[in-house]
Simulated assay, not measured.
Amino acid sequence: MSPDLTQKSISFNSARFLTSASRLEECPPDHGAEVAFAGRSNAGKSSAINCITTNGKLARTSKTPGRTRLINFFSLNRENCRLVDLPGYGYAKVSRDMKDDWQKHLGHYLNDRRCLRGLVLVMDIRHPLTDFDQMMVEWCEHNKLPLMILATKADKLKFGQAKTAMLNIGRKLEGLECLQHLVMFSATSKRGLEESQDALTHWLEGGSAEPV
């Protein structure tokens, strides 16, 4: 599908908080286009979203478990285009029942949200492909959902080390049809910013993409 040239070009610094939802029925109407961000709680997901939107306060981290469980939606200047911040996983100090409940509703969103155009999986380049990361990659492959991986905190490594880490990630994920973009990313140095914005624009404007 070709982009609709009659609509505004997407400007990521137009991103504004729209609403939060704890379950699928509380989400905005299921039309238009969304791209969701997922990642472990310490992977730098909020920093990545804030960097991409050039808004340091857009995606806020919180120590409150109830806040952590919410799916947060951000509108963009193009009508019915949204970025979605999914609950962080792995470090929230909540009860097992609460975790089970939140994972169930998160699963409903991922499985049933028809306007979902792609998933951005944020992982720390120094500790990539955790069990959670592998689970999300496998889910995208099974459901044929386009995937972009942001290997964050690249500024924490020397460039040679970062390149080696990227090669290792690429080898482990070789052959996956869902993986369309593997980006070395740093919210601090802005490495990978333009590449990730271009990929998001392509998904949200309805273009088809080729795997990496």
Rank of each mutant, 00 (worst) to 15 (best):
V120G: 09
R171K: 15
R67H: 10
R78E: 13
A38S: 13
L116I: 04
M98V: 10
G118L: 03
R78Q: 15
A165I: 04
Y109I: 01
F17K: 07
L129N: 12
S2F: 13
A43G: 02
R69H: 05
R16F: 06
K93G: 04
I125F: 09
N77T: 10
D4C: 10
L182F: 03
I52S: 06
L176R: 15
K158V: 10
G207L: 11
G90K: 09
G66S: 00
V84N: 04
E194W: 05
G192M: 04
T201L: 11
F185P: 10
E25W: 10
L200K: 10
E177N: 15
K172G: 07
P128Y: 05
W102M: 05
N72H: 14
L147D: 03
D85R: 02
H108R: 13
I71G: 00
E26S: 02
G32Y: 06
S62E: 07
R82P: 04
P128K: 11
Q134N: 14
V94K: 09
P28H: 01
L176P: 01
E205S: 14
E26T: 01
R67F: 03
L106D: 00
K93P: 02
S22K: 06
E79A: 15
C51V: 04
F12N: 01
L106S: 02
A43L: 06
S46D: 10
V183F: 01
K156G: 01
M123Y: 06
V183L: 02
K144Q: 14
A209S: 14
R126V: 06
Q7Y: 09
L76D: 08
S41Q: 05
S208N: 11
V84E: 10
G90A: 11
S186E: 07
F12K: 08
M166K: 09
R78N: 08
L193V: 06
M123P: 08
P128S: 07
V120S: 08
G118K: 09
S11F: 08
A36E: 01
L173D: 01
G44S: 11
R78K: 12
A154V: 01
W139D: 02
H108C: 11
G56Q: 13
A92D: 04
M148Q: 13
K45N: 08
S189D: 10
V35P: 04
M166Q: 09
S208C: 08
N13F: 04
L157E: 06
